[in-house]
Design a protein around this nucleic acid. Structure first.
Lengths: 211, 211
DNA sequence: GCCTGTGAATCCATTCACAGCT
DNA sequence: AGCTGTGAATGGATTCACAGGC
């Protein structure tokens, strides 16, 4: 409390990163951890870790370190991962299907409660994950009645923007986009893009450069 | 030419980003494009676009803009996406399977030439993508004989580091990791992480903050 | 007039280095 | 002695603003 500082975006991203080893330490019963240890495991600078945490309070004890359990709880509270969230997937191709079946999401509190696909042949079918595949036209209705908070887009690139617009129309304010295009959205909606081929192009550049 | 400037990492990432709309413009036959247009479509500043490109040469014409075809060719040459690359996937669960079937990769010149899984029940099976699933033990051999250049890891987090070590042992120097852990690798190997849940945690923070 | 290429200015994030507490 | 919390210093990257060429 006190200062009203703006939190740097990278700080938020790293908080999530820190929580990974913290979870492991909590499970293994380690009670205390130092900024240096966290930094080491996450590949960042120890001062960075301390500064990131200090934005939100004084969680550590000088001369000692951080209490693993407390710190993890604080981070989860900050990130708002201490509750569950309701998501939908749009585009039940191979990727959408794989995500719906992925256990990592559920384990972290992300529950898929609806699945959509524009293919009339798919609509109505029951997906192995347990969800019935709904037509795109039902997005508006279901987002509201099922109180969906986050939309995941796994459509082909050509359809992604239209789907995003539908989701936003329905009141969605957070989108995770897997289509390799830049989604345009107003301020009020947060969009995160996951573009594998972008990452590959990065790899390939470095490979080529150092050969 | 001339100055030996160090290229900022973000510049490389954006070059790949710029190539997306350029491809669309090339297909639609638009001959010339301005830095402002590119910037707009990619959500960056026009000066940024010009500076990024200027690191590699003078591709534009003052008072006119950039020739779409030329620029795209140059970017592809810089990123080394003007050739094909040989990859393997390790971990043929839902995600690995979906990636192997994903057309986006092939279209951009990324060819999966081998698939591995540690599950003996899967080894030997033919995957719908056309590849035979090989046991982990064959990584070393096949990476060499098939001249695999990039490894994609889609195993559970517990196995990811071991798989990465195997790949690097076999001579792989670029890894795309989908497991939600931080892969440790020496300088000589480039690692890109794709962690969906990290992205979700970001979204969730922003949702929560602005509610 | 228009749009690129680029030094200069600004902004932001990271790292250092040490004071402060246990 | 040890490790956190934090102002100060550093280092990068982004943006501005304008000179340069069509």
């Amino acid at each position: 409390m006190g200062k009203v500082t703006k939190i740097p975006r990278p700080t938020i991203e790293r908080l999530a990163l820190y929580s990974r080893p913290l979870e492991a330490f909590q499970e293994s019963g380690t009670p205390i951890i130092s900024s240096e240890k966290i930094a080491d495991l996450c590949g960042v600078n120890p001062a960075q870790v301390r500064k990131d945490l200090a934005y939100f309070g004084e969680f550590g004890v000088r001369g000692v370190g951080y209490d693993v359990k407390d710190l993890l709880r604080e981070i989860k509270r900050i990130l708002a991962t201490d509750r569950t969230w309701r998501l939908c997937i749009v585009g039940m191709g191979n990727l959408g299907s794989a995500l719906a079946l992925n256990e990592n999401f559920r384990k972290r509190g992300y529950h898929f409660v609806a699945a959509f696909d524009s293919d009339p042949a798919k609509a109505g079918m029951k997906h192995p994950c347990g969800l019935k595949i709904e037509p795109i036209g039902k997005i508006r209705d279901l987002v509201k009645t099922l109180k969906i908070e986050i939309g995941v887009i796994t459509t082909p690139p050509g359809k992604a923007q239209r789907v995003a617009d539908l989701l936003m129309d329905a009141g969605i304010r957070a989108i995770l986009n897997f289509a390799p295009i830049q989604i345009r959205a107003p301020e009020c909606c947060v969009v995160e893009n996951v573009d594998f081929t972008l990452k590959l192009e990065n790899l390939v550049y470095h490979l080529h450069k150092s050969s």
